[in-house]
Nucleic acid binder design. Structure first.
Lengths: 244, 244
DNA sequence: TAGTGGTCTAGACCACTCA
DNA sequence: GAGTGGTCTAGACCACTAT
């Protein structure tokens, strides 16, 4: 009976009385929902809960730790675990390669490079990348198409120090995809915003000038090295969805 | 030597040779970055890594499990752990109460209810909430202000079955805040998009008609019960930021 | 200073899946 | 059928912080 029943159905079958960290998490969520654990109040210690559920403290710990990461609990040593009064929920969303994004929607993907050149880096982008303004950088603009219609316009600056970038012409492979495959697993920031279509953008995205467009801007670093800054401007109607 | 050295500096001091799951994770990330573990290739088993790092398998497991959640590794039983070729990265962002959002930016928050009434639910929103179209629902519109200027307009439908919602006039507390405090920890979906300012919105947000505005739409459920659908339209220039 | 969460270990069993 | 990840246990030490 000591150690004979690990690895229960694990959230697949909601079977009888098996104790998994998922089941403890679910029960904790229920108590929070039902206000058995009221907002602002402390909940029992891990040890207490472990005794109640008849499991090891580590199992309780894992269940509650994940809830804390999601913002549904606040944990502090010595202070205990509390249900926050004003929970700051966290949601996650996926950042796919554009081609996969399009194909996942069941549409045909196509890509078209527009311009390629080396230009001095504009100040705003230099700041975001921690590079000197005016540094010569690769500048690529391109268009991603879905079912033959414009899907999103890509305006990208690439640090020329990025290995292999200088010899790419980005005609057959988009900088988006090339970078993901060659400089993967980078860190950076993402901003979402809205912008009005300039005449030039409107022409590229086949929409009306002034129309509201969804914009995603990313800066990317590989370790400490700035890699790229990109601005993706989507055709009208684009949405980014996530679940919480 | 058996069990004498748990709980190392734990990512605070990057001390000498202590083994923590963070240090293993960092080393794994380095190997991925430096392509010692190449995209598409298998990495060593947990047991092997545990032997290499001189720690328990569980410690390796925790380090790699988190990387898998972040999309930097793909793990499958029997198949092993692989560096994905086309990583689908995941980012998380926070969803604060609007008041906190404003105050976090160092601005003064104010709130103003605009309209309150009970109306039949429009079809689009009914569908999102899994309610019958035409169901009488609370409809509240309000305006959130930052430093005296419009920050975001809130257009919200509330399921009348939500306890206590019917007796609220939402004059002193915004539905946003009231719901967070009274129906916390709910599930739902979030959409980000862009829209052009209608004349009415432009008037409320003190911007030009047609200007591009950032929109966040959320649907919220508490357990199985639909709670609310809200559309937040932000004044021009709003950004949602996150790090990856 | 004492209480609480954070983490590690060593061992074990199981679920999943590839071959 | 066999190999790999997923999880649980029981015990332990430590870091952090409220008091």
């Amino acid at each position: 009976m000591t150690k004979a029943d690990a690895n229960r159905p694990a959230a697949s079958k909601a079977a009888a009385g098996n104790i998994t960290w998922q089941s403890i998490q679910a029960e904790a969520l229920r108590r929070i929902h039902d206000r058995e654990w009221a907002p602002g109040s402390l909940i029992p210690h891990e040890e207490e809960l472990a005794a109640e559920f008849g499991c090891a403290r580590a199992t309780v710990n894992r269940a509650l730790r994940e809830l804390a990461i999601l913002g549904m609990l606040e944990r502090r040593r010595k202070a205990g675990t509390r249900v926050p009064l004003n929970p700051v929920r966290r949601a996650t969303f996926q950042i796919p390669v554009i081609r996969q994004d399009v194909e996942a929607k069941g549409m045909d993907y196509a890509y078209q490079r527009l311009t390629l050149g080396t230009k001095p880096l504009p100040a705003a982008i230099a700041a975001a990348l921690s590079l000197e303004p005016g540094t010569p950088c690769l500048h690529v603009t391109s268009l991603h198409m879905a079912d033959g219609k414009p899907y999103c316009q890509e305006d990208r600056w690439i640090n020329p120090a990025v290995e292999g970038a200088g010899v790419q012409d980005f005609v057959t492979i988009s900088p988006n995809e090339w970078l993901v495959q060659n400089i993967p697993f980078s860190r950076g920031g993402i901003d979402f915003s809205a912008t009005s279509a300039s005449p030039i953008l409107a022409d590229m995205l086949q929409c009306k000038p002034g129309e509201a467009l969804f914009v995603m801007e990313r800066t990317t670093f590989s370790g400490d090295m700035p890699v790229t800054a990109v601005r993706l401007t989507y055709a009208p109607g684009h949405k980014v969805s996530t679940a919480i």
